[in-house]
């Protein structure tokens, strides 16, 4: 049996990788993928913790989080699309009309 802590560690690692992706990628779509990665890492954590306690609540929560992730994906990609229409780019660096 694999100790639960390993799953938690894997979750933390994936979460951190997602964070790095958000930081270093210029392409907004890839940035957004990294955020999905972070959410997925949390999902894994929920499942692992639920399993450890023998509680199924964690799985139900993951079910809801997936819906949230899906909704965010749809809306987020829509917003990226709208931004692209205005600026003809998805490069994060070029969105700096608003500053200071």
């Amino acid at each position: 049996m694999t100790p639960i802590n390993y799953y938690l560690g894997l979750g933390a690692l994936l979460f951190a990788i997602g964070t790095v992706g958000v930081l270093i990628r210029r392409n907004l779509i890839v940035v957004f993928m990294s955020i999905e990665l972070m959410l997925n890492a949390v999902n894994l954590t929920f499942i692992a913790l639920g399993r450890a306690m023998g509680s199924a609540d964690g799985q139900v929560i993951v079910f809801f989080v997936m819906i949230v992730a899906g909704v965010e994906a749809a809306v987020g990609l829509g917003i990226i699309l709208a931004a692209f229409r205005n600026r003809l780019t998805v490069n994060a660096d070029e969105f700096n009309l608003l500053r200071w």
Partner: peptide, 18 residues
């Protein structure tokens, strides 16, 4: 500016959600 505002708000908001 509006779509940029939405974009930034969304990206940071989703990040924060994590």
């Amino acid at each position: 500016k509006s779509s940029e505002a939405g974009l930034k708000y969304f990206l940071l908001g989703a990040f924060s959600t994590g």
